Amino acid sequence: MDSTPTPTLTLNNGVTMPQLGFGVFQVPDEETTAAVGTALEAGYRSIDTAAIYGNERGVGRALAESGLARDELFITTKLWNADQGYDAALTAFDASLDKLGLDHVDLYLIHWPTPARDLYTDTWRAFEKLLADGRTRAIGVSNFQPAHLERLLADASVVPAVNQVELHPGLQQRELRAFHARHGIATEAWSPLAQGAVLQDEAVTSIAARHDRSPAQVVLRWHLQLGNVVIPKSVTEARIRENLDVFGFELSPREMDALAGLDRDMRTGPDPDTLN
């Protein structure tokens, strides 16, 4: 396995974030501790969870058992839709922090904009308070479209540091990524492998064969070279390690172009404009 350190990105408030992290979406709480423990032992230092995943306690147990210093770790969690609004968000944050067993998180995200509820600007005020109070080192959003970001920025004192969105070769989000670039918002990809749906594409498999790498490693490398933060998830030790082993090769401009040609507006998850 390549031993190159995981690269970091500097967020718009000066906080550094590992560009490759470990996600625990759909991992049951009782399996989370072992999976996160394996990831930390393999070398991951960024862990991404959410209140709705129901596994913040499992993440917290793994962190406590790891013996790693707190400042070596970058922990992200997210506020669920039912807890939006100023007071509710502050209460929900306290609950997440308690489950994680931490005195602060590194990144706190609004999980979905839920536009029909029209609460995300009030929620953002609570996030700005949490940031000012030092209870999170950075604040951001997840699944926000350009229109949601425009609305938020019109009222915000703090520009989101991150927008975590579904992003993979089948859904490349070019307009959204351009918006992020203009406003200094880091792009973070969830479902970076499209739940495996892009791994059989001939463009991916041929590049993988050329580099003697797996299709998943090729797609993760594509994300990194685009500048995305990426958080693959697995509960299999070999896959957890393989997903981190993506720094010993580089895709050529022609290979990047071939993967760019796979964009087909293919969502594997909900539409942010309609989920509430």
Rank of each mutant, 00 (worst) to 15 (best):
residue 98 D to A: 14
residue 100 L to W: 05
residue 108 Y to W: 05
residue 57 R to G: 06
residue 66 S to C: 12
residue 60 G to W: 04
residue 76 T to Q: 06
residue 112 W to M: 01
residue 62 A to T: 12
residue 85 G to E: 15
residue 71 D to I: 14
residue 110 I to L: 07
residue 81 N to H: 05
residue 96 S to D: 12
residue 48 D to G: 01
residue 82 A to F: 14
residue 108 Y to T: 02
residue 64 A to D: 14
residue 54 G to T: 11
residue 51 A to C: 10
residue 106 D to R: 04
residue 73 L to E: 06
residue 107 L to T: 06
residue 82 A to P: 02
residue 87 D to Y: 12
residue 76 T to H: 03
residue 80 W to C: 07
residue 57 R to V: 13
residue 95 A to L: 09
residue 55 N to K: 03
residue 85 G to M: 12
residue 58 G to D: 11
residue 67 G to M: 10
residue 73 L to P: 05
residue 103 D to V: 03
residue 50 A to N: 00
residue 83 D to P: 04
residue 84 Q to R: 05
residue 85 G to V: 14
residue 57 R to M: 02
residue 77 T to I: 06
residue 63 L to C: 03
residue 70 R to K: 13
residue 90 L to T: 12
residue 48 D to C: 05
residue 58 G to F: 07
residue 95 A to V: 15
residue 76 T to N: 06
residue 88 A to P: 13
residue 110 I to P: 00
residue 53 Y to P: 05
residue 83 D to L: 13
residue 82 A to Y: 12
residue 89 A to K: 02
residue 95 A to R: 11
residue 111 H to Y: 00
residue 75 I to Q: 00
residue 69 A to I: 04
residue 86 Y to E: 08
residue 98 D to P: 01
residue 85 G to H: 11
residue 63 L to S: 03
residue 72 E to I: 11
residue 69 A to R: 11
residue 62 A to Y: 03
residue 97 L to S: 05
residue 67 G to Q: 07
residue 89 A to Y: 10
residue 62 A to F: 07
residue 54 G to Y: 10
residue 55 N to W: 10
residue 66 S to I: 14
residue 77 T to W: 07
residue 84 Q to G: 04
residue 87 D to P: 10
residue 61 R to W: 04
residue 61 R to K: 13
residue 106 D to K: 08
residue 83 D to C: 15
residue 92 A to I: 13
residue 49 T to Q: 03
residue 88 A to L: 12
residue 103 D to I: 01
residue 111 H to C: 02
residue 67 G to E: 09
residue 67 G to S: 06
residue 81 N to K: 06
residue 72 E to N: 12
residue 86 Y to M: 02
residue 105 V to Q: 04
residue 58 G to S: 09
residue 63 L to E: 01
residue 69 A to V: 04
residue 100 L to P: 02
residue 105 V to A: 05
residue 52 I to C: 04
residue 77 T to Y: 06
residue 61 R to A: 15
residue 70 R to G: 09
residue 104 H to N: 01
residue 91 T to D: 14
residue 51 A to Y: 12
residue 60 G to L: 07
residue 96 S to K: 03
residue 53 Y to I: 13
residue 75 I to V: 15
residue 92 A to K: 04
residue 50 A to I: 01
residue 54 G to F: 11
residue 81 N to L: 06
residue 94 D to F: 02
residue 57 R to N: 07
residue 87 D to E: 15
residue 111 H to G: 06
residue 86 Y to N: 02
residue 100 L to V: 09
residue 97 L to G: 01
residue 60 G to I: 04
residue 92 A to N: 13
residue 104 H to F: 13
residue 86 Y to S: 03
residue 63 L to Q: 04
residue 89 A to V: 13
residue 111 H to F: 00
residue 73 L to Q: 10
residue 102 L to A: 05
residue 97 L to V: 13
residue 71 D to W: 13
residue 67 G to F: 11
residue 59 V to H: 02
residue 52 I to V: 15
residue 106 D to Y: 12
residue 62 A to R: 02
residue 90 L to V: 15
residue 70 R to N: 14
residue 91 T to H: 09
residue 91 T to C: 08
residue 64 A to F: 10
residue 63 L to N: 01
residue 112 W to C: 04
residue 78 K to M: 11
residue 83 D to A: 15
residue 75 I to N: 00
residue 110 I to F: 02
residue 109 L to T: 05
residue 50 A to D: 01
residue 111 H to T: 09
residue 89 A to N: 10
residue 100 L to F: 08
residue 99 K to D: 07
residue 49 T to D: 02
residue 93 F to V: 10
residue 52 I to F: 14
residue 48 D to H: 02
